[in-house]
């Protein structure tokens, strides 16, 4: 069994999984880490897609810098998503 395709499947699955976690986690710090993970997996995929330039850039920027920038922003604001109080309104304001 050739392992490259199964590695691809695993990476894509991990990437989507970390994306969902990044969106769902209420802890924003964790979400930022999740975002960085998405970038990291994406950079592996870029490499597999024969785009080493992009892979390098994504690894440096997506995984390190943008994660760091988000974390700095969290540091200056608040770490947790506040619980949304349920205010009845019309449809857009669920």
């Amino acid at each position: 069994m050739n392992c490259i395709p199964c590695a691809e499947y695993i990476i894509v699955a991990l990437m989507i999984g970390s994306a969902i976690l990044a969106v769902e986690w209420r802890d924003l710090l964790a979400a930022a880490v999740g975002m960085a993970a998405v970038s990291l997996f994406a950079s592996i995929l870029f490499f597999l897609l024969q785009a080493p330039d992009v892979a390098m850039t994504e690894a440096a920027i997506g995984a390190a810098l943008s994660g760091a920038v988000v974390i700095f922003a969290i540091k200056r604001t608040q770490r947790f998503e506040t619980e949304e109080e349920e205010r009845p309104g019309w449809w857009i304001r669920w």
Binding site: L28, A32, M35, V70, A73, E81
Partner: peptide, 8 residues
């Protein structure tokens, strides 16, 4: 609803 989450 969190702005940072939206940006992420």
């Amino acid at each position: 609803k969190n702005l940072l989450k939206i940006l992420i």
